[in-house]
Design a protein around this nucleic acid. Structure first.
Lengths: 237, 237
DNA sequence: CTTTAAAAATTGGTTACCCAGTTATACGAG
DNA sequence: CTCGTATAACTGGGTAACCAATTTTTAAAG
């Protein structure tokens, strides 16, 4: 049982080591934007790790836009200079897993923006989908069942209606992390109350009448009610 | 030359197809949180694709927190229910690449928050690092060289000082995308002016004296000067 | 010396097999 | 029938060889 976790950590450590070494290599060889990295084989040999590990590390750096891998051709350093590359790799390596507080902080920031944009930009189709998510949520709550999932989908529908796929993407990334932390702290009970429905309804109506300021305010109210309770739980644990 | 791009698109399409099929499978088999997915071998066979493709698709779903892969044991569906799983997979599949406007919008949102948090929470060490980035930037500009990279690192140093690793992570993700778009629209010239130094200095001082409101305002000024120019470029192109 | 075409070497991706750890099953003692 | 153990099957990850597309080298023709 312990070994499972250890294996994962170990794998992450080697990945970080490889990323670090790739960074060193770029410095050492003075590789500029567009230059080609040594082949995966060469790297795996030089670093003394498996080629799979090298590929995973490269994929991670591709996610952050630092490398680009082109089939049957090679891996190339992205169109940012050596100095920026160094700084970013260092930052990526030092990046630690977000704590619950950071997640909530980020979620509130994102949602106050997406709800505002949704009010401004929502199409009729967007509105219908938000309504559908709202109805599903209300139905679940009124029948006394747990409605965490429907709650979540309502918020994601708003994110989508914001018309900003970058924000939408970030919402999709943090949402499950929030959910799992929620379950850990057992604060889902609130989703059984009727207050949630009213708050969701207020948000929906603001979006419907295309009032961004009101939408933002209603979302703020929603979070106030939700997370105040939440923080208390965490402090007492 | 065309084949390069086609290969990449093709690979992405098969990945999306696999993700979609995994979603269908979870529905069909009524897999609940914690249940085990069929083995990678089985999936690759059933879907008629390579096991590597399956692994990559699973990795992507791991990024979004929907699956968890445990060595020598199996891949498990995350601690969110079937309904949420369906909704999220659908959203992920429909997610399109962010356009320039979305990136800028997101960047401004993130930075106005990180600079505020940095003013509130920055340690002495954080402050020193921001100062170092600022000096490097000023030096480059004053010697008449291009300073896009130093500019970027200054902003990332602030993100780090915010003490919110989730926001920090998002900043790291969008920054290179912004940079490459910047280069495409040739709006880097501004980094040669001295105005940038003054604006950065104002932001630094606000963080130093731990004044979040002022820090936010100075950052806002900075962006106003920067992106107004930028939008004009884009519209005329 | 330049140009061009063909062949050899190199590349990221794919495949099949193997490994060590995990999980399920079967079987025997009580 | 119950429990514990041992054996067999299964799993994600590692390894090495292979593939097709690409890039570089080579060499021959002009």
């Amino acid at each position: 049982m312990k070994l499972k976790i250890l294996a994962k950590i170990d794998s992450l450590d080697t990945q970080k080591a490889i990323i670090s070494k790739i960074g060193d290599l770029i410095n050492l060889k003075n590789l500029e934007p567009g230059d080609k990295l040594p082949s995966e084989r060469t790297l795996s040999e030089k670093f003394g790790v498996t080629r799979s590990n090298v590929r995973e590390a490269i994929q991670k750096l591709e996610l952050y836009g630092l490398l680009e891998s082109i089939p049957q051709s090679g891996t190339f350093v992205a169109n940012i200079g050596v100095i920026a590359m160094n700084g970013m790799i260092e930052d990526i390596l030092k990046l630690e897993d977000p704590d619950f507080k950071a997640l909530v902080e980020t979620r509130i920031l994102l949602e106050l923006k997406t709800v505002r944009l949704a009010a401004l930009r929502r199409s009729e189709d967007d509105l219908e989908k938000i309504k559908a998510a709202l109805d599903a949520y209300a139905k679940k709550v009124q029948s006394g069942e747990d409605a965490v999932q429907e709650d979540l989908l309502f918020h994601l529908a708003i994110a989508k209606a914001s018309g900003n796929s970058s924000l939408n993407n970030f919402m999709l990334i943090i949402t499950p992390e929030i959910i799992t932390n929620f379950e850990r702290y057992h604060v889902c009970d609130k989703n059984l109350s009727n207050q949630g429905i009213e708050e969701h309804n207020a948000i929906y109506n603001a979006i419907k009448m295309q009032n961004p300021k009101l939408a933002k305010q209603k979302m703020k109210d929603h979070f106030n009610a939700l997370y105040q309770y939440c923080y208390n739980i965490k402090k007492s644990s």
